[in-house]
């Protein structure tokens, strides 16, 4: 059955929200706001590289890798395990995980926005196998926690494509004195960035699905976070529109609780109002929907 999509004023502005988020997180590009760069202790859990000349918030993944690397040295010097836990970073991460969860990915992440923009260049899409989504947890445990713990080297940052884009490209561009450091690893990192950028055209949100450790942390909290997405099977007429518009390449009718959902709410374009974001405490939340009727038609 073919249905016209529901037009929600908020959904129509998701791209603008992502753009504003990207600008705000990189305000230090503006000369008069450059002092904000010195306030870099504030971790904001989206993929926005601190090495970007304009970044005003630090990356919690970078901070976690630093913490893991220092933990081994501190424990070896006699500091107790309880004292080396990075409470500030974990507290920040968990607050955002419990409250907004993967809405951070769908609405505020600059790298997510870049993927959404490039995805518009082609209608032909490849679909990674479902098991590939578990690679994110391997990157989280392996390259963000365990390997940095034993080597004190930030291995995830070394291969992070957002770092290659925002730091690796922009820093030498704006600071010629850094160009002397360009070597084999820089070329390798930028080649990986090109491969990722190409994949953004032909796969929906590939980085979010395959590699992002931050999304993996949010996914761990998915069933517990305040905002949940629910499908009302009684209203669904199987038109398939939600599957067509899902930037994560999911079928919301069957995968509404998938750990790969980025909570962008694009599936709320459902003309029957069968899909909605509901607060977790709402009664009968498995079947209840919230006010699409209240939105502007």
């Amino acid at each position: 059955m073919k249905c016209p999509p529901h037009r929600s004023p908020w959904l129509a502005r998701r791209g603008w929200v992502q753009a504003v988020s990207t600008v705000v997180l990189n305000l230090a590009f503006l000369r008069f706001l450059a002092p904000l760069k010195s306030a870099g202790g504030f971790c904001f859990p989206v993929l926005n590289c601190w090495a970007c000349p304009g970044a005003v918030t630090s990356c919690p993944l970078g901070a976690l890798q630093h913490a893991a690397g220092e933990a081994r040295l501190l424990v070896a010097s006699g500091t107790s395990w309880l004292a080396v836990i990075p409470y500030y970073i974990l507290g920040t991460l968990f607050i955002f995980s419990v409250t907004l969860g993967r809405f951070m990915c769908g609405w505020l992440c600059p790298f997510g926005w870049l993927q959404d923009l490039l995805a518009k260049l082609s209608k032909y899409k490849l679909r990674p196998p479902p098991w590939a989504g578990y690679l994110r947890y391997a990157f989280l445990v392996g390259l963000v926690l365990v390997v940095p713990y034993y080597t004190s080297v930030q291995w995830f940052s070394k291969i992070c494509p957002q770092g290659a884009l925002q730091g690796g490209l922009l820093q030498p561009l704006l600071h010629p004195e850094l160009r002397g450091g360009i070597g084999a690893w820089w070329w390798f990192k930028e080649a990986m960035l090109v491969a990722w950028l190409l994949s953004f055209v032909f796969v929906r949100r590939p980085f979010c699905r395959l590699m992002c450790p931050l999304g993996a942390i949010f996914s761990l909290f998915y069933g517990l976070s305040v905002l949940q997405i629910r499908v009302d099977p009684h209203k669904c007429v199987d038109c398939g529109l939600c599957e067509q518009v899902c930037p994560a390449g999911l079928n919301p009718r069957e995968q509404v609780s998938s750990h790969l959902c980025i909570s962008c709410l694009e599936c709320q374009r459902c003309p029957q109002g069968a899909i909605a974001a509901v607060p977790v405490w709402r009664k009968d939340r498995r079947e209840e929907t919230v006010g699409l009727e209240e939105q502007v038609p």
Binding site: A39, G40, G41, C43, C49, W50, A51, S58, G62, A63, H66, Y88, I89, V153, Q154, S157, K158, C160, G163, A164, G167, G168, Q171, P172, L178, G181, I182, G183, W185, W186, F188, K189, E190
Partner: peptide
């Protein structure tokens, strides 16, 4: 602590 970690540009992290 986090501010100190990010106090200077990590050139190795961005491949330089």
């Amino acid at each position: 602590t986090v501010k100190d970690w990010f106090g200077q540009l990590c050139t190795s992290c961005i491949g330089l």
